[in-house]
Amino acid sequence: MTEQAETGRARRRPIVRPVMLALLLLAMTMPVYLLVVNSFKSQDDILGNPFSLPLGDLTLDHLADAVNSPQYNVIRSYGFTLFLVVVVDVLCILLAGPAAYAIARSTSRRAQSLLLYFLAGTFIPGAALVIPVIYVLRSVGLANTVAGLVAHDVASTLPVSIFLFVGFIRTIPASIDQAAMIDGAGRLRTFWTIIFPLMRPAVVTVLILNSIGIWNDFVSPQILLSPGSGRYTVTTAIYAGISQYSTDLTKVFPNLLLAVAPVVIFFVYMQRHIISGLTVGAVKG
């Protein structure tokens, strides 16, 4: 029995693994391959031979059209999306850091229930919440404004950020705080000058988690910023553009390529941080 199993294993292993990996390679690269090659082809060529390399009649026209498009321009939307990401990231850290510090350094029951209060926010599905958010924004006069979107995005990033920070701060010995206090530093100063620099791994995790989340978010900008505002993030620009030209593949592929490029480049450079950051964020948050 065992010997049969041994030989069976010996015969099977070298075949199964390469086949499975080839399947994986094909499944994961095929869409990207199609995206790239078809961004440089004419409509007839895309419909005629979608899988071919555009060796003979490579054209940059459609990519150039997408770059210079007056409407729903993806390149132009990079700027606004990046602005949104940076503002939300900074505000989130400014708010979540001190709050997490206070919660982590307190042993009172109230601090623990405050943490639970924030954690409850991670349960709430964004699509279900965004409509009532409109009513709240309207009543505080921020409907259809970038400030309203930023406020909503910051609030949506706070729960997981605070939770990850609290977990990390608790691993930093409190004797460090006491030393700073004896030297005369107040609590806010102790946090920003002593504790915060020690939190680098947690801050990197939170920044990656929030940046990718905000960059890829579609529901909030689509619904909280009306098309009249003229402000488009990458996702809402793509949505507006493709809804209009869905049959013109010479517009679809180049625009998608432009939308994917910055994320993929960022991912290639930072993959180790991104993968660990997103995994930690999902599992612990």
């Binding site: 400014l94 709050a99 307190s106 709430i124 709240v136």
Partner: peptide, 27 residues
């Protein structure tokens, strides 16, 4: 001081997440 550290987060989170949940329940 503790209150000051926590209050901004609590305020933003309450107004933008908890209140909308309340609004949704009411509506």
């Amino acid at each position: 001081v503790t209150f000051g550290l926590v209050a901004p987060s609590v305020l933003v989170y309450t107004v933008m997440t908890v209140v909308p949940v309340g609004v949704a329940i009411y509506l």
